[in-house]
């Protein structure tokens, strides 16, 4: 069969969602940010909620997320996205509001906003990209940087005695009564992408039921920060990040579905 006979509109099975703008993504080649952007916009398109969706962009690599997603967006100060989302959602309770944040934004400078938005049970979705490093500023240590992991501010590896331990913020927020759906996913392989998309879809759907925060962590790569090729970084992520940040649902419909103590200790 000739290729031309296959490439016909009626045979289309996957195309870029029109809810992504034409702007070129500012992310490094192979960075998971782009994949998650596409997934969120695909879900907004499939649920047909563009006219009711407001996104909050953070400070970090994804500060320009509003250039790429064709929805109304607000750019928040570093770490404050959950507070900004709270302000919007409290006044527009029927709208869909989500934040998009990295690990430095959400789990270091914005820890208070994260914990308290989750504890108040704001009916928002929080999409949390954890790549264990500060990407935009050039690869410094993040709150989620693994023990022994090298970064530009832990050039000899993170030593918990002086630099503290990597924080499992997702396990922490799962324990708060205000979170309804808490899960940790990845986007480096097709199976993971499909699971993440399901989780994102659920994060929007639970907002209708007003059950509290949907918190979706996506463990992702930072090949530039980690100084690896994209595929090597994904392999490194599987071997090093996943054992410490295990994938899977942590809380579903307000009930913890995992032995948290096992993961925490």
């Amino acid at each position: 069969m000739d290729i031309k006979e296959i490439i016909k509109p009626e045979n289309l099975v996957h195309k870029r969602t029109p809810l992504m703008t034409d702007a070129n993504l500012s992310y490094c080649p192979g960075c998971g940010h782009g994949t998650v952007h596409h997934l969120i916009m695909e879900v907004v398109e499939e649920l047909d909620i563009q006219q009711d969706t407001i996104g909050i962009a953070p400070v970090g690599c994804s500060v320009l997320a509003y250039d790429f997603m064709d929805i109304d967006m607000t750019q928040a100060a570093h770490g404050r996205a959950p507070a900004v989302a709270t302000g919007i959602k409290r006044l527009w309770p029927e709208k869909y509001v989500f934040t998009y944040q990295g690990d430095g934004d959400l789990a270091a400078i914005g820890t208070a906003e994260t914990i308290h938005a989750c504890n108040r049970g704001e009916n928002i979705a929080i999409f949390f990209i954890n790549n264990g490093i500060y990407g935009m500023t050039g690869g410094q240590m993040a709150p989620t940087t693994l023990e022994g992991m090298k970064s530009s501010t832990t050039p000899y590896g993170r030593d918990y005695k002086t630099m503290g331990h990597p924080i499992k913020i997702t396990e922490l927020v799962a324990q708060l009564p205000g979170t309804s759906f808490v899960t940790r996913q990845a986007v480096h392989k097709p199976g993971n992408v499909r699971k993440t998309k399901k989780a994102i879809r659920k994060a929007f759907e639970v907002q209708k039921e007003k059950m509290g925060v949907a918190f979706i962590e996506i463990v992702s790569n930072c090949n530039s920060g980690w100084k690896m090729t994209p595929n090597d970084s994904n392999k490194w992520m599987e071997e090093n990040m996943f054992p410490f940040y295990p994938l899977g649902d942590i809380k579903v419909e307000g009930k913890i579905v995992k032995d948290l103590m096992k993961d925490l200790v």
Binding site: M1, I3, E5, I6, I7, K8, N11, L12, V13, H14, K15, R16, T17, M20, N24, L25, Y27, P29, G30, C31, G32, H33, G34, T35, H38, V187, H188, K189, P190, V193, R194
Partner: peptide, 30 residues
């Protein structure tokens, strides 16, 4: 690019992991 077009099954795995959303996929029953 498709170095071996005959082998493509149109599974779309490439497209859904593509961070930049640059791949469009078509599929037919042969």
């Amino acid at each position: 690019f498709m170095k071996d077009p005959e082998s493509c099954t149109g599974c779309a795995n490439c497209a859904i992991v593509c961070p930049d959303g640059v791949i469009t996929v078509y599929r037919v029953k042969a």
